[in-house]
Design a binder for these strands. Structure first.
Lengths: 72, 72
DNA sequence: TCCATGTGTCAATGATTCTTTACATGGCGA
DNA sequence: TCGCCATGTAAAGAATCATTGACACATGGA
């Protein structure tokens, strides 16, 4: 992990809240690889804004419900 | 511009709505260069999620108020 | 006119995100 | 036990984002 991001996310919880969705299934729905999902879920890096929007759309929640940016 | 982003934004409007903030001033507040602000404002590329969050914070609005991701 | 300010363009470079491929581990059912 | 599935690690390379520096143009004030 070269540069851990400060942004945290609720992807894992949202996956399980949506029919026990697996990482592979989520990746397929996003059109990215499973490794990308793993890396984002673990906070190894924050996704591009586009991918973040797609993520929120898959779960049907606003962006701020998927990602959290801690105050200073 | 190889791949224009599909994400649009309201940065310009938000700048003027916040005391006629200039691009240079916004850039300084974000800790990025003026060129970066220009490129994002024009939709040449979408910013990183972190920068997007900082942008929303500067204007005091949720992320979804700054950036819009059009439906399919 | 001269100068400062705000905006915009271009090019080169570095940093980060994402892909691809390969392999490892633990749980579970046949 | 064997095979499959879900998860995880790792590394190299491609694609995208972000930086700097230099220059251009319009506007407004001294």
């Amino acid at each position: 992990m070269v540069k851990p991001t400060r942004v945290t996310n609720s992807i894992r919880a949202l996956r399980f809240a949506n029919g026990e969705m697996t990482q592979a299934e989520l990746a397929a729905r996003l059109g990215v690889t499973r490794q990308t999902v793993i890396a984002i879920e673990q906070g190894r890096y924050s996704p591009s804004l586009e991918l973040a929007f797609q993520l929120a759309r898959v779960f049907g929640v606003p962006l701020d419900d998927v990602f959290q940016y801690p105050a200073e």
